[in-house]
Amino acid sequence: MRTAVAWMLPALLFLGGAAHAEWLERVEDGIMGTRIVVELWADDRNQGNAAIEAVLTEMRRVDQEMSTYKATSEVSKVNAEAAKAPVKISGELFDLLTQAQEYSQLTDGAFDITYASVGYLYDYRKHVKPDDEAIANALPGINYRHVVLDRQTHTVKFARAGVRIDLGGIGKGHAVDRGIWILQQHAISHALVTAGGDSRIIGDRIGKPWVIGIRHPDRKEEVIARIPLEDAAISTSGDYERYFDENGVRYHHILDPHTGRSARKVRSATIIGPTATRTDGLSKTAFVLGAEEAIAIYNRLEDIDAIVVKPDGQVLYTKGLEAPAAPSSPR
Rank of each mutant, 00 (worst) to 15 (best):
A4R: 13
A6V: 12
P10W: 02
G17W: 10
H20F: 14
L24Y: 05
D29R: 15
G33H: 05
G33I: 03
T34K: 05
A42P: 02
N49S: 10
E53F: 02
E53A: 13
L56V: 05
R61D: 10
E65M: 10
Y69S: 07
S73E: 00
A80P: 07
A80H: 12
E81C: 10
A83W: 10
P86Q: 00
K88H: 11
K88G: 05
F94H: 11
T98S: 14
E102I: 15
Y103T: 07
S104T: 07
Q105D: 14
G109F: 08
A110R: 02
A116M: 10
A116Q: 11
V118D: 04
Y120F: 15
L121W: 04
D123V: 01
Y124L: 09
K129W: 02
A136P: 03
P140F: 00
Y144D: 14
R145W: 01
L149M: 05
L149R: 08
A161T: 15
G162N: 05
D166I: 03
L167F: 00
R178K: 12
Q184W: 08
V193F: 06
T194Q: 13
G196V: 04
D198Q: 08
R200Q: 08
I201Q: 06
K208F: 10
I212K: 02
P217H: 04
R219H: 15
R219F: 13
K220P: 07
L229Y: 06
T236Y: 00
Y240N: 14
R242H: 09
E246T: 08
E246F: 07
N247C: 08
R267Y: 06
L282P: 00
K284I: 09
K284S: 11
F287A: 01
L289G: 08
E292V: 09
E293K: 15
E293T: 11
I304R: 01
D305M: 06
V315P: 04
T318V: 04
T318W: 06
L321D: 07
L321F: 01
A326K: 12
